[in-house]
């Protein structure tokens, strides 16, 4: 089978699966006569999404901004802190266990604290997103840096390379596949964090983000709108995940075995 046919297959298969599931859903709702308050028909949800497109587009943009900003902060903080922790044994012994314990604190419990610090609005959503997304980046960065081939490190030691030079030219490039793995997990978490942040910080009015749209729609008993907003939340996460995966693949495709696996999955 040639490459083009494989690519078409890769796209067609999941699309068909989704269409079949939606059709089944639609048929089940009609057949059982279940109340639209409990489970609206997919066609009704689509209609609602179209009618509320202005509201939903605005909300998606806001949530995406929070998730993207949170993800960016988490990535930068995770890679920089991870590099310092991996480089300095004293930090590794003192800070890393602490980070592991902090990760166990549930975000929902911490979120009100973020409201106290950052107020009601976008900054809290960004902070919640960053807090929950930072740990996988930190852990995978440390893991990647500590797995760098010691033989290659000796090549740099022989040339009397400074730790900074070695980090730029050896440690970081060698850790790209591990860091990308952490970033992919962080991409999904960043969206969750942003939504939780929106729930607690409750900023809304005419510029409500998706988290608030979900809450308001629930109170107004508009299940169709809840479904629509949830679908858009998922699409924000999917988009972020896709961007990170593609970037990681571009960086490592020529030399790392994981990129070859990716090719297999894409078939």
């Amino acid at each position: 089978m040639n490459r083009a046919a494989q690519n078409i297959r890769a796209v067609v298969a999941p699309v068909v699966a989704v269409l079949v599931i939606l059709a089944g859903w639609q048929a089940a709702v009609i057949a059982t006569g279940v109340s639209p308050f409990l489970l609206p028909r997919p066609t009704v949800i689509a209609e609602t999404m179209w009618q509320s497109r202005a509201l939903l587009f605005d909300a998606t943009l806001r949530t995406a901004t929070a998730a993207l900003a949170g993800f960016a902060i988490a990535s930068a903080v995770g890679v920089i802190a991870g590099s310092l922790i991996a480089a300095l044994p004293i930090l590794r012994r003192s800070l890393y266990p602490l980070a592991t314990i902090l990760q166990m604190v549930p975000l929902v419990a911490v979120a009100p604290l973020l409201v106290i610090w950052f107020g009601f609005g976008l900054p809290t959503a960004i902070a919640a997103s960053a807090v929950v997304a930072v740990f996988p980046v930190l852990a995978s960065t440390i893991d990647g840096l500590r797995s760098v081939d010691p033989g290659l490190r000796e090549i740099f030691a022989l040339a009397h390379a400074s730790p900074w030079t070695r980090w730029r030219k050896l440690d970081l490039p060698a850790s790209v596949p591990a860091i990308v793995t952490g970033l992919r997990i962080a991409a999904g978490l960043a969206v969750i964090g942003a939504i939780v942040g929106e729930f607690v910080s409750g900023y809304g009015g005419s510029h409500a983000p998706l988290g608030i749209v979900v809450m308001t729609a629930m109170r107004e008993a508009r299940t169709d709108l809840v479904f629509g907003a949830v679908a858009l939340c998922a699409s924000v996460g999917f988009f972020l995940f896709g961007v990170v995966s593609t970037l990681g693949w571009l960086l490592a495709r020529r030399w790392h075995p994981s990129a070859q696996d990716e090719m297999e999955i894409r078939k």
């Binding site: 090549i155 030219k169 060698a174």
Partner: peptide, 18 residues
């Protein structure tokens, strides 16, 4: 002990680069 993400010429040039 070559850097797998570098081409042959960039691997050979590494000691000079450092």
């Amino acid at each position: 002990r070559l850097l797998p993400w570098r081409t042959v010429i960039d691997n050979v040039a590494l000691p000079l680069e450092l």
